[in-house]
Amino acid sequence: MFDLDGRVAIVTGASSGLGAAVARALSSAGARVALVARRHDKLAALAEQIGGAAVACDLSDPGRVGSVVPAVVEALGPPEILVNAAGNMFTTERAESEPLDAVRQTMDLNLLAPFLLAQGVFPHMRAAGRGSIVNISSISGRVGIPGIPQASYAATKAGLSGLTAELAVQWARHSIRVNTVAPGFFRSEITAPLYEGERSLEYLRRNTPLPLEGTADDIVGAVLWLTGDAGRYVTGQTIVVDGGWTAR
């Protein structure tokens, strides 16, 4: 049920963190993986390790996003899996002070790029008669996080759940499934400062019911489930993987 042998997958944000972990997992399940991010050097190293293809693209530039899918088709073939893992927080200002350029950059990368990539893979998935799109969101798209200002970031992550539900309904007739995985806190480039001091670590421990520290690998299982036949009857959902943070 988790066998992805022969399927072509696109993973964005694959130069590090969760995107890289997802790319490795999909490759281990048999998929041929196209790695997408800005940093070609890191992409190339991982692509060599897993036998995939590196596609360098700045996804925060809407004018460049359209080049990704054609490059993947040329390198590996038509994609049947898309994992939108690229995302960033471009400002830590409080909502009343977020600069407009940072808001727009956040929207372009976190929400517009996944939509444009979904449009790009749609004809290939329709032709194949199947497909799976997984958007990586965040618990900040479901609940406010005290002490960590992120209004535009949270808006984009909530927007992914709305986009997911709508695409799932529209494209279900083509057996294209669209879901979102919403991780809680785990070590990444964005969250690195939270893991540098005992006070912030204690904050995370106190608010996470499971006595574990989240890692990128804890998120990968949900993505594998949703991309393969194990999740063939699941679409339009936002799956929260947060150690119980939002269950409190």
Rank of each mutant, 00 (worst) to 15 (best):
Y195F: 15
E213V: 08
V234W: 10
A192S: 01
A192T: 01
L212V: 12
V223T: 08
S200W: 07
P193A: 13
P211N: 15
G214D: 02
V223M: 11
Y195G: 06
E202N: 13
T208A: 00
E196Q: 15
D217F: 04
D229F: 14
P193L: 14
G214M: 02
L210A: 09
L204S: 06
Q237I: 12
Q237W: 01
R232D: 01
S200H: 11
A222H: 00
E213Y: 07
T208P: 06
W225H: 15
V223K: 00
E202L: 11
L226P: 06
V234T: 15
P193H: 14
A230Y: 05
E213Q: 12
A216T: 07
R199D: 14
G236H: 03
T238P: 12
W225E: 04
I219S: 00
D217G: 06
W225N: 13
G221F: 08
D218E: 06
N207G: 00
L226E: 09
G197A: 13
G221M: 00
T208I: 04
A216E: 06
A222S: 13
W225D: 03
E202R: 14
I219P: 07
T227D: 05
T238S: 13
T235I: 03
R199G: 04
L226M: 09
L210I: 12
S200Q: 14
D218A: 02
P211T: 15
G197E: 12
D217T: 02
G221L: 01
D217L: 10
V223W: 10
R232C: 03
G197W: 08
G231M: 07
L204T: 02
G197T: 15
A192M: 05
D218N: 08
A216I: 03
V223G: 06
L194N: 08
D217I: 02
G228M: 08
I219G: 04
A230K: 06
N207A: 03
G228R: 01
A222P: 02
D217Q: 11
D217W: 00
R206C: 07
D218S: 02
R206H: 03
G228D: 04
A192P: 02
L226V: 10
T208R: 02
T235R: 05
E196V: 07
G214T: 05
L226Q: 05
G236N: 07
T215D: 01
N207F: 08
E202K: 14
G231C: 13
D229T: 15
L204G: 02
G197L: 05
L194Q: 12
Y203H: 01
